Amino acid sequence: MTAQTTDLALEVRRFLEAEVLPLEPIFLKHGFKAVLPELERVRQKVKEKGWWLPPLQKPLGMGLGLGVFARLSEELGRSPLGHYVFNTQAPDIGNMEVLLKHGTPEQKARFLEPLAKGEVRSSFGMTEPGYPGSNPVWMNTRAVLEGDQWVINGHKWYTTGFEGSSFCIVMCITDPEQPNPYARASQIIVPTDAPGFQQVRKISVMGEEGEDWMSHSEIRLENVRVPQENLLGARGKGFAIAQERLGPGRIHHCMRWIGIAQRSLELMCAYAARRELAPGKPLGSRQAIQHLIAESQAEIHAARLMVLDAAEKVEQKGAEGARVEISLIKFFVAGVLQRVLDRAIQVHGGLGMSDDLPLSFFYRHERAARIYDGADEVHKTVVARALLKDYGLDISL
């Protein structure tokens, strides 16, 4: 990381501490919509500073490379609201990157431009309740071309941010007879107000339904019709586009998790230094607490270096060329996040369990880190099979 990158990261951290962290108590108590007006004000400040959409090319964003944005993503991840104020929240940032690379000029004008300006939000429909997310080529949602329209029928869930979104990029089978299972699916842009497109429910996750962008929905598409030109990219390339999206997306997620872990460590240290077990005997004077702090620092540092290395390889070789590195960081950093959060809550005791701090929010919402974008077990298998192949054992997936 250059000195310029470090300076930018520190400046962004100070900005978030001044503008966003004070909103967290209101958010934790009353929900996302309660702070949305203030977040829009902060978003405007981000635009004025020239920080809007760091990873997207100019003039839409700052045009930062993946490695530089990875460092910035850590800072944004320190708050549950950080990425939103920079317009780099999932799934919008992934949708923007895909539209930028694969969208037609008409699709970019209609869908990408308002999304990049922060005027609308979007969602992404891939996971289905009846099929394992670990096998993304196996799904039941179908799109049939009738004349100049796609007719879509299907059932999705864990569609993040569907509530309040203006369109959803839907993964669906368009060529069921294609011998190559990786060439059966396509991605189609579907306006959320299209007839037959309905939200079944918001899914309660760890006791919370969430609101607006911070929610997950179960959705159904019943004879939903969209124009043929809403096909995103080439027909049958849905899986390939999804893999393109997930490579950089996993870098983003991992650095966000490191930001959460780093803030959790800082909260842990501050509490251990001031909390007294008895007069003149702070919690941090106990060796057991010191070990939790040291282990957390070591794991965070290792995770950060691993992710920055993976980001460099993605920039050099593309997502497919860095497949093993991406899988390594996905399960390793998710594990570090879980362990550091658990230690931080343990050190804080009852305070850590309360919503007076963001630790319990992070713990509830980030347990999914070991599941989404590929469960730990899937990524460990990818790594092990790649290593074993060098020793003559070729196991087909």
Rank of each mutant, 00 (worst) to 15 (best):
residue 4 Q to V: 14
residue 7 D to I: 06
residue 20 V to M: 12
residue 20 V to K: 12
residue 20 V to R: 14
residue 24 E to L: 01
residue 25 P to G: 07
residue 39 L to Q: 08
residue 46 V to W: 11
residue 46 V to Q: 11
residue 51 W to E: 10
residue 56 L to F: 11
residue 58 K to C: 01
residue 60 L to N: 09
residue 63 G to S: 13
residue 64 L to N: 06
residue 65 G to E: 14
residue 71 R to S: 06
residue 74 E to Y: 02
residue 75 E to V: 15
residue 84 Y to E: 07
residue 84 Y to A: 06
residue 87 N to L: 13
residue 90 A to G: 05
residue 92 D to I: 04
residue 99 L to T: 10
residue 101 K to G: 02
residue 102 H to R: 14
residue 109 A to P: 00
residue 113 E to A: 09
residue 116 A to K: 05
residue 120 V to N: 01
residue 123 S to T: 04
residue 126 M to T: 04
residue 128 E to M: 09
residue 135 N to V: 14
residue 136 P to C: 13
residue 142 R to Y: 09
residue 153 N to F: 11
residue 153 N to W: 14
residue 156 K to N: 14
residue 158 Y to M: 14
residue 159 T to A: 15
residue 159 T to K: 03
residue 161 G to T: 15
residue 167 F to E: 09
residue 167 F to L: 05
residue 171 M to D: 09
residue 175 D to Q: 15
residue 176 P to M: 01
residue 176 P to E: 03
residue 179 P to Q: 02
residue 182 Y to V: 09
residue 191 P to L: 02
residue 192 T to N: 13
residue 194 A to Y: 02
residue 195 P to L: 01
residue 196 G to M: 06
residue 197 F to I: 03
residue 197 F to Q: 00
residue 198 Q to C: 00
residue 199 Q to F: 01
residue 203 I to N: 00
residue 204 S to K: 10
residue 207 G to P: 00
residue 209 E to G: 00
residue 215 S to V: 05
residue 223 N to S: 09
residue 224 V to E: 10
residue 228 Q to G: 00
residue 232 L to Y: 10
residue 233 G to E: 02
residue 237 K to S: 03
residue 239 F to R: 05
residue 247 G to M: 02
residue 252 H to D: 13
residue 254 C to V: 05
residue 258 I to G: 05
residue 258 I to E: 01
residue 263 R to G: 05
residue 268 M to F: 05
residue 270 A to Q: 13
residue 272 A to F: 05
residue 273 A to R: 14
residue 275 R to M: 07
residue 279 P to N: 06
residue 280 G to Q: 11
residue 282 P to N: 09
residue 286 R to G: 03
residue 288 A to H: 10
residue 289 I to D: 10
residue 292 L to K: 12
residue 298 A to Q: 09
residue 300 I to P: 12
residue 300 I to C: 14
residue 301 H to I: 03
residue 305 L to Y: 01
residue 305 L to R: 14
residue 310 A to Y: 12
residue 311 A to E: 07
residue 312 E to G: 13
residue 315 E to M: 10
residue 319 A to H: 14
residue 320 E to L: 11
residue 322 A to K: 04
residue 322 A to Q: 06
residue 328 L to H: 12
residue 330 K to Q: 15
residue 332 F to T: 15
residue 336 V to P: 03
residue 345 I to R: 15
residue 346 Q to D: 11
residue 364 R to L: 07
residue 367 R to K: 15
residue 368 A to W: 07
residue 374 G to N: 10
residue 379 H to D: 13
residue 383 V to S: 06
residue 384 A to S: 07
residue 387 L to H: 12
residue 387 L to S: 06
residue 387 L to C: 06
residue 397 L to S: 08
